[in-house]
Write a protein that binds this DNA or RNA. Structure first.
Lengths: 327, 327
DNA sequence: GACCCTAGCTAAACCGGTTTACCTGCGGCT
DNA sequence: AGCCGCAGGTAAACCGGTTTAGCTAGGGTC
């Protein structure tokens, strides 16, 4: 019932605990004959090292961490994160320590604890803020980390990112080519770095633009759409920062009798089954692959490689039925 | 930079490590004066106990585990699990140790390891199989567990479940009341217990039924639908085991020129934004709340309460545009 | 005054590994 | 013979907690 420990192996093989440790970890200090015997005994006993004990003496914790700061209820609808997590797991043999907290302060406290206790070997940093304190924290703690979905080049940290600027520009250019001039953008959380970067790209490429703040929820998407369609200068196209808001916006348009795409064009950032079935034009990126890439980047750092900035492939605009030439 | 340990507190308070441990954990053996002094020192030093070290001497691991056996890529589309996880987290102050593996054998091996190493205090068991070996394993290991979405009453384990039989019956009765006689069912993975239970309920309540096996993916939903619509005896209604397959089925029907709901009624098991926007009639349950309930059940077991079977509220059939009277 | 309890604390073992300091024996070199 | 170096190992400390055995001083009892 009880798992064999290194001590049991030592006794069975007739050597000391230290020798067993050396043998199992492939380090020098024991003869090949002894090593073979130890490995033999270990395997017949069905030995598995205890990560818990190992983590205590500052070795691997066999887990990487991810902290999400969201109201839990809202989180469930954001397929993005689950896709990301699934992608990460596809490349990792270790477990993911996941916790959802309510505030940035708790998040930071949690990273400190996990680091202090060797509970994780490294962490993923998502939802990067403008001048995010976590970047500095990771460097000072020396906790391996990879920034996921930032803007590239975050201090000494590895990073996996997409070029939001180029992506936004391509969306706007596409809409322009259809004759749109008055274009609106419904944003995600304004505290996030990529929101700001998309804002900037939007402003610099659009002729007559208007930005309305949202927060990724269907409600905010609907509200923003109502506001835009009821304003003095109704836009002919709206770009939403995620799929949920875009679909909600399309519903509002339909309920107000605004026809899509003849009167209003709609573009969603991040494709999903939701967009596919709603026939929404969307900026598509492979979030699963993105997560997998992030995991590989973190593993590389854990193996001692120099942190790198990996730029994700440029998202592709998938044109469906929700966009068309301006009337 | 280094976290204060129990040793530092002992030194600062002028007592032994043991006394500090007793004081911090509110156990008897130290005077109130000493306890107060120790707590004082601990708080000024910003002490946080190391869960890693604590777990070694068989105390709390401050984490609960969840193992998912799925091809990672398919997982990302299953909003169900993420909703569930979000709900669990909403009720837990500890972290969730999550790992996706490829086989049942790996899953079992993982549970054994986590148990042996005190990496988790307890686990959630999902995707219950017909006569699932994990139930027996948990009992024999003495690892606290709660069965999520089984059929109630699993040995000595706590359980949170929904009455699939009653739910299926209510769906079939609803379809019958619309005049449907030839009804089809597209299932989820046939190895899962709730699939079998739904099958049984379906068979016992339907008059002229046919069952086609699926695996929750859009592809399998589409294939099953094509098969059904091309058969000798085309059904007038199809009940799908999840939202993804139902939506895919609706697409296939549309592409074959079969009109919904006048020629074919469609019902999805588990509601989601996907069903809402596809105007699909769906069996709706609050997965987030379900997860929250599961977490509470596990926490109760961890606190020593007797394991209970909690029956979830009966899923509610939300009628939308995809079901109607038979022509 | 002898005896026994008990509160309050300390020292040390323990959990399961890693790591360091040190010991031993053997071979080679001069 | 004397010395050095090294391979191959052991014992013990250490990581940061918990837990147990044991010690001491003080009070109550007869």
């Amino acid at each position: 019932m009880k798992r064999p420990t290194i001590k049991d192996i030592a006794a069975a093989a007739g050597v000391s605990k230290g020798a067993v440790s050396l043998a199992l970890n492939g380090r020098s200090g024991v003869s090949e004959a002894t090593r073979a015997r130890v490995l033999e005994v270990a395997s017949t006993l069905g030995y598995r090292p205890s990560v818990t004990a190992r983590a205590l003496s500052s070795a691997s914790a066999d887990a990487v961490g991810l902290v999400l700061v969201r109201p839990p209820r809202a989180l469930g609808d954001e397929a993005f994160f689950f896709q990301l997590i699934a992608g990460m797991q596809s490349e990792m043999s270790s477990a993911l320590l996941l916790q959802v907290v309510g505030s940035r302060a708790e998040e930071i406290e949690l990273y400190r604890r996990w680091w202090a206790e060797h509970r994780v070997d490294g962490v993923f940093l998502v939802d990067l803020l403008v001048s995010d304190p976590r970047v500095e924290l990771m460097s000072s703690l020396g906790l391996p980390a990879v920034v996921v979905g930032g803007a590239g080049h975050h201090g000494s940290l590895a990073s996996v990112w997409a070029d939001d600027h180029a992506a936004m520009t391509s969306v706007v250019e596409y809409l322009k080519s259809l004759g749109h001039r008055r274009i609106a953008r419904v944003t995600g959380l304004s505290s996030l770095l990529h929101t700001v970067r998309r804002d900037a790209a939007f402003v610099s490429s659009v002729v007559d633009g208007v930005i309305v703040a949202g927060d990724y929820t269907a409600e905010s998407g609907a509200a923003a759409t109502r506001e835009l369609l009821g304003s003095d200068a109704v836009p002919t196209a709206i770009v939403y920062d995620n799929d949920v808001m875009a679909v909600a916006g399309a519903e509002v348009a339909a309920s107000l009798g605004v026809s899509v795409p003849s009167e209003l064009s709609i573009v969603a950032w991040d494709d999903s089954v939701l967009c596919q079935h709603g026939r929404l034009t969307a900026l598509s990126r492979d979030t699963f692959a993105f997560g997998a890439r992030a995991a590989r980047a973190l593993l590389a750092v854990l193996e001692g490689a120099a942190p790198v900035d990996v730029e994700d492939v440029l998202p592709e605009l998938v044109v469906r039925g929700s966009t068309g030439p301006v009337a």
